[in-house]
Amino acid sequence: MHELSLVGNMLQIIEDAAAEQGFAQVKTIWMEVGQLSCVEKNALRFCFSVVVDGTIVQYAKLEIIDVAGSAWCEHCHCEVAISARYDTCPECGAYTTKVIRGEEIRIKELEVE
């Protein structure tokens, strides 16, 4: 379950930012999670609820923003929506797609006090 390490890393990033910027409490965390990132959102929420106890984010609300997968087709030179990493291009059927969006796992925004 890599979601546990993701939450641990997220907490470390937030604590480092709190030390640098001087905030003491986090109210809301907006996190972008790409469709192709292999992150199970329910597991992420569960790990978040367990790991944050006793930290500056213990009362924070975790908002997950879904990021759809998209790729660039080298054959027909267009951006296309994909739902799996090795999908064919829905326009031309080629296997020459390169993922350009949907692998993200990042903190987009924090609401702090």
Rank of each mutant, 00 (worst) to 15 (best):
M1N: 06
Q21N: 15
L36I: 06
C76M: 09
M31R: 10
G102K: 06
K61G: 02
Q21P: 07
G102D: 02
E3R: 05
I64H: 05
D16P: 09
C76Q: 12
V50T: 05
H77W: 02
A18V: 09
L6D: 01
M31T: 13
I13C: 12
N9L: 14
E111L: 05
A60D: 08
T55Y: 00
E74Q: 13
Q58T: 08
E20K: 13
E63Y: 02
Q25I: 07
T28S: 04
E113Q: 12
K41Y: 01
W30M: 08
E15T: 14
E63K: 15
D16A: 10
Q21K: 15
I82M: 08
L4E: 01
D16R: 13
L36R: 03
K41C: 04
N9I: 09
Y95N: 15
T96K: 12
T96S: 14
T88C: 13
C92D: 05
Y59T: 11
R45D: 00
V52F: 00
T96A: 11
C92M: 11
V112C: 08
D53R: 15
C89P: 09
N9C: 11
M1T: 10
L62I: 08
Y95C: 12
E74W: 04
T55F: 00
F48N: 08
R101E: 04
E40L: 10
I82Q: 07
Q25W: 01
E40K: 12
I107A: 01
K61N: 14
L36P: 07
C47L: 07
S5E: 07
I14T: 05
I64N: 01
C92Q: 03
M10S: 14
W72N: 15
A24K: 09
E103R: 14
A81F: 03
L44H: 10
A43I: 12
N9H: 10
E63N: 15
L11W: 03
I13G: 07
I56H: 05
C73L: 13
I64M: 04
E40I: 13
D87F: 04
H77N: 10
R106V: 02
M10W: 01
I107P: 03
V51N: 05
M1I: 09
M10Q: 03
G34F: 01
G102Q: 07
S70P: 03
T88E: 11
G102E: 03
Q12A: 14
L11A: 07
E74T: 08
I100R: 12
S83F: 06
S5R: 11
F46R: 13
I105L: 13
I29R: 11
A71L: 11
S37N: 04
Y95M: 11
G54V: 03
E40R: 07
W30Y: 12
I100F: 06
G69W: 05
N42L: 07
L62W: 00
Q12I: 15
S83A: 10
S70F: 00
I65S: 00
V67F: 00
